[in-house]
């Protein structure tokens, strides 16, 4: 069974009529890193929001199976507990809520839903400190409110920290490379690479080949007008980088 199987998915913004995803098919296997590339407005972020269950979007047809189960009817928190993680393109600030409070609330919320006991505080602190160190996240950052006053790079590293703590089955990285300098990009990529495992899949959404130099994809999909129009190996990303989207998108149309 595939980790993620999307069949003929169509979706639109709840308040508009225009369809954004137009019969999208996509399969991600366990252990696979699938890159999704595509021009602006092709539906990349919509795909990530629809999978995570954002209310502003309405699914008009098709299914998305995670481990064989259609998740499209579930609330976002239930999808999260089933192992779906979205690293946000623009992580959200929550003033007054300490990072540690937030991380612990998230871990325990998922553990409860999966019938596990809450994490013990000493174990939690040890866990966070270990992961934070790997990602160059300082104790000072851990003491601040969630994403408040963080630089762009700090916010993205913080997303990866959350991913590392929540240990999802399927991680969707939505333009995690945007706004990162090379050093920050490397730290983020190292964090992702450290989590690659035979049981886990990644969907890496990006505009640029650059990120894929650091996170080597197994497969590259090209998204255009709400559909996957081409699938290939890592060389497809290089081809896109060299020729631009227009060429491939034009051929497919």
């Amino acid at each position: 069974m595939s980790l993620l199987e999307i069949k003929n998915l169509t979706a639109k913004l709840a308040e508009e009529d225009k369809q954004i995803l137009n019969g999208l098919n996509l399969t991600v296997e366990k252990g696979q890193v699938a890159a999704i590339m595509g021009p602006n407005g092709s539906g990349k972020s919509t795909l990530s929001y629809v999978l995570a269950g954002r209310e502003d979007y309405e699914v008009t047809g098709g299914e998305a199976l995670l481990d064989g189960e259609n998740i499209l009817e579930l609330d976002p928190d239930e999808r999260a507990a089933k192992g779906l993680f979205l690293a946000f393109q623009y992580p959200i600030e929550i003033p007054g809520v300490g990072q540690m409070t937030f991380l612990k609330a998230a871990i325990n919320a998922q553990r409860r839903k999966n019938g596990l006991d809450e994490i013990a505080t000493p174990e939690f602190i040890k866990l966070v400190n270990g992961r934070a160190k790997e990602l160059g996240i300082s104790q000072d950052m851990l003491r601040r409110s969630v994403n408040v006053g963080f630089s762009g790079g700090e916010k993205k590293r913080n997303e990866i920290l959350q991913m590392a703590l929540l240990q999802p089955k399927l991680a969707i990285l939505d333009e995690t490379d945007s706004g990162l300098d090379i050093d920050a990009l490397k730290i983020v990529a190292d964090g992702v690479n450290a989590m690659r495992s035979p049981d886990r899949g990644f969907v890496v959404i990006t505009h640029y080949q650059r990120l894929l130099d650091y996170i080597k994809p197994d497969v590259v999909h090209v998204l255009s007008a709400g559909r996957i129009i081409k699938t290939g190996g890592p060389e497809l990303a290089l081809e896109l980088e060299a020729k631009g989207y227009a060429d491939i998108v034009g051929k497919a149309a």
């Binding site: 976002p76 928190d77 609330a105 998230a106 919320a109 839903k113």
Partner: peptide, 11 residues
């Protein structure tokens, strides 16, 4: 904010 928290597993 709500979606962010819920994506992390909070009801």
């Amino acid at each position: 904010q709500m979606f962010y928290c819920m994506q992390r597993g909070l009801t």
